[in-house]
Write a protein that binds this DNA or RNA. Sequence first.
DNA 1: TTACAATCCGGACCGGGGTCCGCTTAACGT
DNA 2: ACGTTAAGCGGACCCCGGTCCGGATTGTAA
Lengths: 228, 228
Amino acid sequence: MLYAGFMSAAPPPFPTPQEPVGHPELIQLGSALEADEPCLRADAARNRARLLEAAARLVAERGADAVTMEAVAAAACVGKGTVFRRFGDRTGLLTALLDHSEKKFQAAFLAGPPPLGPGAPPVERLRAFGRAMLRRSHDELELQLAAEPGANRRFTAPPRRVLRHHVAMLLRQAVPEADCELLSHTLMGQLDPALIHHLTEQCGMPLARLEDAWVDLVDRVTGEAPAR
Amino acid sequence: MLYAGFMSAAPPPFPTPQEPVGHPELIQLGSALEADEPCLRADAARNRARLLEAAARLVAERGADAVTMEAVAAAACVGKGTVFRRFGDRTGLLTALLDHSEKKFQAAFLAGPPPLGPGAPPVERLRAFGRAMLRRSHDELELQLAAEPGANRRFTAPPRRVLRHHVAMLLRQAVPEADCELLSHTLMGQLDPALIHHLTEQCGMPLARLEDAWVDLVDRVTGEAPAR
DNA sequence: TTACAATCCGGACCGGGGTCCGCTTAACGT
DNA sequence: ACGTTAAGCGGACCCCGGTCCGGATTGTAA
């Protein structure tokens, strides 16, 4: 079972906007673009699909900055209000755009083959997790960056929570005596898209250095011998 | 010599807005409110003072959210454009508000008494640094949070850079073989105001736990024996 | 087929950040 | 005192994210 609720949870009534509610965290798979969302009126589903398609086209043709709520609405021949009802806010829309990749990634570390998936020792999985995250973020950097929620919700946004919980779990296995809750925040900080962008694009660091640093960090934190 | 240039550097001409320029990082001390900025026309200095005072009053009376550029301008009997020319953007204004405390803090770890200042062994100084940061951020949380720059400039904003450089320096002394540049990013992540806010306010963690986690993290990263 | 209720739609509207440019004024040389 | 000029000023203006609500659509039950 994969987490996927951050989209269906977003646009309930509308008068009562969103506020991520509880944590109905476990839902079955389902693509974002192929709009198989449940309980959506025909026209609503159609518009939802149109909107995602329009947004994707915009980001492809003119970059993430061009993904204005108005622009998306216009490109999808739909009212602005519709965009907000469906996706809550800009972050929600961008997040929806990343939903597919997100779920694939979750599947990989929750149920895929080792060392990313279960089967390998936790430290090994941590190393693999970081490498995978770094590469994924590096590829989708523009979108990931644009989808970053404002300083507040940066830690409550569901996708991040899932990743962090996973790291925390691995940490508990590797270093049970530590404060893994907080340690997971620390590790995830190293994988923050904004940081990756800053280091690779603005500082010109090669991605490999980030990967090395991640592995090194994991080793230090878990007290593992620097296996390099 | 303390860093203090992030304010005087912000509002040069105006047609050419800001863009942090090079790094004229070392400038002498000087209070923010007592407007002793150099090369400012009399009226400009006066307005600058008025603006800072108005902003401070607003944040005190109605919270940081009420610090609207328009509101500040109005409260200072000044045009909106003036606020932007002087401080660049909202973040700049809020940063200016924190300037005094910032400089005091810098003075403490650059030239103050050990263990925060020079004299103590680097690991000791790191521990003290984290504790100090946590307490300071916890006190000024609202402002710190409001002053947080958008995802982009989060790592290029001068005040943060100085802190990070300091941590990197201490790290180089403590663990010369590590990638201290990246490690400093990791450590600073643990002291991010947004994270502190999330953990203490939203998750209800006591500040002491954050302090313990910091010390533990420093120990792990530097390979120090968990001296607790 | 018709009627009804729940859901959805769309665009007018609002507030706030940021920009622009014609006018004003402080600073300085004579 | 006066003229010149660069610096400063202010508010109209634009864009965008987000909200609201009267009216249109859909699904359904009779």
